[in-house]
């Protein structure tokens, strides 16, 4: 009985490369999700992931900048502490 790529990824055979990837820590459900997409959709998803990380990075940078500015000026919000 032949198994689809999705079935193989969701139920890897012991000793297989798929099982090795799972043991290594690769989330195979993400591969399954992407298998269902067209190549262009996979690139769109990649771009969305990049955009999200970039937004998060920018927010963290701005947060650190504001925090440093407040440290310099002593303008802390009530109850805020710097750990």
């Amino acid at each position: 009985m032949k198994r689809t790529a999705e079935e193989k990824l969701l139920n890897p055979e012991p000793g297989s490369k798929i099982a090795a990837a799972k043991e290594f820590g690769i989330d195979l459900t993400l591969l399954v999700e992407n298998f269902r997409l067209t190549p262009e959709q996979r690139l769109e998803k990649l771009q969305q992931a990049m955009n999200s990380f970039e937004e998060l990075r920018t927010e963290l940078e701005n947060h650190h900048l504001k925090k440093n500015d407040r440290r310099k000026t002593g303008d802390y919000a009530d109850g805020e502490s710097f750990g």
């Binding site: 198994r3 090795a20 290594f24 690769i26 298998f35």
Partner: peptide, 22 residues
């Protein structure tokens, strides 16, 4: 490159459809 390698090996194995698995 090791995580990428593991992913690629898994994808290659999953994509093989000629062999009887059982």
């Amino acid at each position: 490159d090791i995580p990428g390698l593991r992913i690629l090996e898994a994808i290659r194995e999953a994509s093989l459809d000629e062999e009887d698995e059982y």
